[in-house]
Design a protein around this nucleic acid. Structure first.
Lengths: 204, 204
DNA sequence: CTATTTCATGTCCAACAGTACAATATTTAT
DNA sequence: ATAAATATTGTACTGTTGGACATGAAATAG
């Protein structure tokens, strides 16, 4: 089982070699005939080139993973729909690539956690034949927040401390706390970590 | 990390032991309190019992896989929607079970190929109009963490307090802090919020 | 014009988080 | 066998967080 990285110029990044010692880079043209059964093909080409490349690779029994700079759910779903078995960020660390390889090589599918929730939630409802529009109770609860609270919530969800938020917004730390208390009460979470989780399930 | 097979009578099939030497069978009642973080729970109960059992297992940080005789797509989606990470046939061979375990333990989701097509097809349409954004930047490695540290890191990334993690793992709060200090140092983050952010990108 | 909402700030305090010093037992590697 | 890594727990200390009391100004809705 070999790993092939398909890049426009056939270049091979060091971190890929670090992840998989027995690997090689290829240009899109030289893909056909090279790959074998259960090889893993990592595609770094443009969106336009996927379709045919995924097809070529899978026809030869290879497993395809699309790499992209844009962590775009729709793009990911398109790739998976076309036959790719994974969708991962281009700059993923060697350790992540290893995990992805492990999963896809074992018949699994690699998608982000956030995307997964959407996929399962969405499709489940789709199969249930429900005509209701996707009313995420989150957007409602988010609308409870005032403009200022929203800004604070976002900053905190990005990992900022109260002090940092205060500096960013040029207000005192006390005021940040006041906003946070209101946010916690409105969104029914106990602390900034739970807030982070709540926000991430919806804004990502 | 242990494997638990939940059956009505608490019986344990030979092929499960063959797949995972380090395993045990449980009845639905005895599930609570037994399983730990990152354990894998295989559910062989009736459909009616899933909901609560998946909930109990995941609340304790375990990964749930539903086993069923009926290869029913809708049943599978329901299981996954409830929080299960895999859906596999009850009579699956040991080799298959090992693969499933490998995939779900690495953040993957196990579903059949046929179901996958449906899921993606359905959700792709369902998700046509949603915007996305993302940020990815990391270099440090998850493999720097020991097994124990990994368990703590995941628990914290799910929003647990030190006290809660201590209770879950049946260790003192002080030990949790020790692990966390090691985690922070290794992953070069300053606190649990930054850890959360880092893990969410690493395991995306 | 008043009532309400939003935004800002203050002090006090208890709980939580994280580090700096440890120490000890077990397992793993050389 | 010895060294290194891992897992566990302890005390003491500092900084952060969030709630419980507040107050006051500006904007907005009725």
């Amino acid at each position: 089982m070999r790993h092939w990285f398909i890049t426009a110029d056939g270049s091979l990044k060091a971190r890929w070699k670090k992840a998989f010692p027995n690997t090689a880079a290829l240009t899109p043209d030289s893909l056909r005939g090279q790959v074998q059964l259960n090889d893993i093909v990592w595609l770094l080409t443009t969106v336009e080139e996927w379709s045919s490349l995924i097809d070529v690779a899978t026809k030869q029994g290879a497993i395809t993973v699309v790499m992209s700079y844009a962590a775009d759910d729709r793009e990911a779903l398109k790739a998976l729909d076309l036959g790719a078995r994974g969708y991962v960020h281009t700059l993923a660390a060697p350790e992540v690539l290893k995990q992805v390889a492990l999963v896809v090589a074992n018949q699994g599918v690699w998608v982000g956690q956030a995307l997964l929730a959407k996929v399962l939630g969405g499709s489940f409802k789709a199969l249930q034949q429900r005509g209701e529009r996707s009313t995420n109770h989150y957007s409602e609860s988010l609308e409870l927040l005032t403009e200022r609270e929203m800004v604070v919530a976002r900053a905190v969800a990005q990992g900022a401390t109260n002090k940092e938020v205060a500096r960013q917004l040029d207000i005192t730390e006390r005021t940040v706390k006041a906003h946070l208390s209101a946010i916690f009460r409105k969104l029914v979470v106990r602390d900034r970590l739970q807030l982070m989780l709540k926000l991430s399930t919806l804004t990502q």
